[in-house]
């Protein structure tokens, strides 16, 4: 191979590499599960600073004026790859339209407001039956379905808050890099969990998580308090669609963002 050919091959290789890099940076990370300790392009989320004296309780109201002032940032969602045998967990290509807004209280606590489109309301809440005979009260214990799944959302932050040279694994953190999870499931309510790797998610029963969720004509709006968050703390989000039998690792997820 002569000198000109070598230069040409080199140039093509560099160009292809650049194109692939740009494509990865622009497109949703379909293979984002492999994202472990490798840090990617920083995706910034800037919270709105709440006026001094604003209480967490006040911001938990979805109608609070701060929410309309906070920047609304669209989330780039990906679907996890099929994890289990059986066809129902294949990616059908659908992605909900999701946005996030953040408000930071003067004490450093951050409130996360997520809204996303979901035309069907899937909840594990026990529904009151319309009785054929007698009082409807006696039927209120009946489950809606034993094979249905509920819509849900989660916010994940590293246990160690603040700037990170390398992110924890997107798969619920990893050994030595635990994560905290702020979770809401329709019908079940709010839960705080922790994990250090896939399959290790543990409910922190003693830590009650206050939050607020509302069903809208478009989908869901949920506000979660995620505690004190120093600048440049990584954060990621996940959304489950009950209609698509999402649960466990079957979900929409984002790569790591950073709260600035």
């Amino acid at each position: 191979m002569n000198k000109e050919s070598l230069i040409l091959v080199g140039a093509v290789t560099v160009a292809l590499g650049a194109l692939i890099a740009v494509a990865i940076a622009r497109k949703p990370h379909r293979s984002g599960l492999s994202t472990g300790a490798t840090k990617q392009t920083v995706l910034k989320l800037t919270p709105l600073a709440a006026p001094k004296g604003t209480s967490q309780k006040a911001v938990l109201s979805l109608g609070h004026a701060l929410w309309s002032k906070a920047p609304q940032i669209p989330l780039r969602l990906s679907r996890t790859p099929p994890l289990y045998a059986g066809g129902h967990n294949r990616d059908d290509g659908h992605r909900p339209s999701a946005t996030v807004r953040l408000v930071k209280l003067t004490g450093g606590e951050v409130m996360v407001r997520l809204s996303w489109t979901d035309p069907t309301e899937d909840t594990s809440k026990r529904t009151k039956r319309i009785a054929d005979v007698g009082s409807p009260k006696i039927y209120s214990r009946h489950p809606r379905s034993v094979s249905g799944f509920a819509d849900a959302v989660a916010v994940m932050l590293p246990r160690k808050r603040g700037p990170h040279d390398s992110y924890p694994s997107l798969m619920m953190g990893h050994k030595g890099a635990p994560v905290d999870l702020y979770f809401w499931r329709a019908g079940l309510g709010f839960q705080k969990l922790s994990a250090a790797g896939r399959g290790t998610t543990t409910l922190r029963r003693r830590e009650k998580l206050g939050g607020v969720a509302r069903r809208t004509s478009q989908g869901w709006v949920v506000v979660l308090p995620v505690g004190k968050v120093p600048a440049r703390t990584p954060v990621s989000f996940a959304i489950w669609d009950g209609k698509r039998r999402h649960r466990d690792g079957l979900k929409y997820f984002t790569v790591w963002y950073e709260i600035w």
């Binding site: 289990y84 009785a131 005979v133 039927y139 379905s145 039998r245």
Partner: peptide
């Protein structure tokens, strides 16, 4: 794995309105 059986494959536990 099989499908997840729906409640219809179990049948609902019946309630009877004895009180009324």
């Amino acid at each position: 794995p099989s499908k997840l059986p729906p409640l219809e494959d179990y049948g609902e536990a019946l309630e009877y309105d004895y009180g009324q």
